[in-house]
Structures are given as structure tokens and as C-alpha cells.
């Protein structure tokens, strides 16, 4: 069901985070996302890309356009070789930050998309996958 159009972008600087946001915005427009849907996935991408840079020490984002019988979706995969997240549930809870952020990025990104998974081991890097579907595609039972 997935049309494998995968784009890979480095996440190593603020400028590259901005580039990732723009790529996601373009893909969302092309996939027929509404303005609200675009803004949600772009905002989630911004949070996850910044976590990759700030907490993971940099990495990359893979952007894929996926589809089902109802419409299109966007799958974003953020990967880094950083320190990993010792306790994912704690990291996801609102207000938890080991830096000086608001501690809302990870949990907020999860709420902004439909599918969300985190794979992380202490010392073994982190991979976060987020998938958002357009409204029409969301109606199709998964």
C-alpha cells in the first residue's frame, strides 16, 4: 500500500530543520492535506527534527508519501545515534525535559499525528516514526 517515494534529509543544523519543515510542507500540499493537516504534520516534524538535533546530536529524516484507498499519508522517520531515551513513557509526559525546553515536543508531536512509534535504547540511538493521513485517508479502516 505504500508508494515508496522516500526522501532523506540530514538534520544537523537549524537551517536543515527549516529545510525539513519546508520539505514536509511541500509533500503535505502535494498529498492533498488541508491547511490544518499541513500545519499539524509540519509542526510535528519541527519538534522531532529539533529533538534529533538537540538531544540526539544530529541525524536524518526520511520522508515518504504513503497511500491507502482513501487518500494519501506522510510518513516521517527521524533517526539519530545519540544517547537514546532511557524511559520513553517519562520522555513522552508533558513538561518533562532534560534540557531547558517546555518538555512538550515529543508528547505534542504524538498528539499531532495518527501513528507514532519510538524505538530507543540507552546508548543505542533513537528512531521516531510519525505517520499522518489526510482526512479522507483516515476514514479507511486500518
Amino acid at each position: 500500500m505504500s508508494r515508496d517515494e522516500v526522501t532523506r534529509l540530514e538534520i544537523g543544523s537549524d537551517v536543515q530543520i527549516a529545510g525539513a519543515r519546508q520539505a514536509v510542507r511541500q509533500a503535505a500540499v502535494a498529498a492533498g492535506f488541508s491547511l490544518v493537516e499541513q500545519t499539524k504534520i509540519v509542526t510535528a516534524a519541527s519538534e522531532l527534527a529539533r529533538n534529533t538535533l538537540v538531544h540526539g546530536g544530529g541525524g536524518h529524516m526520511e520522508l515518504a508519501v504513503v497511500e491507502n484507498s482513501g487518500g494519501h499519508g506522510i510518513r516521517l522517520t527521524f533517526t539519530d545515534d545519540g544517547p537514546g531515551i532511557p524511559d520513553v513513557d517519562v520522555a513522552l509526559s508533558d513538561g518533562y525535559s532534560t534540557g531547558n525546553g517546555l518538555g512538550l515536543g515529543l508528547g505534542g508531536a504524538r498528539r499531532l499525528v495518527q501513528d507514532f512509534t519510538i524505538e530507543s535504547r540507552p546508548g543505542g540511538g533513537t528512531t521516531v516514526t510519525a505517520v499522518a493521513w489526510s482526512r479522507m485517508a483516515q476514514r479507511v479502516p486500518r
Binding site: 490544518v36 500545519t39 499539524k40 517546555l102 512538550l104 505534542g108 498528539r111 499531532l112
Partner: peptide, 13 residues
């Protein structure tokens, strides 16, 4: 704008 209001709420800001 509406889309910004929604994301602000979902982020929990």
C-alpha cells in the same frame, strides 16, 4: 489562525 490554534492546543502549550 485556526490551524495555529489547533496545533498550540495539541502541543499542550
Amino acid at each position: 489562525r485556526p490551524q495555529i490554534a489547533q496545533t498550540i492546543v495539541q502541543l499542550g502549550i
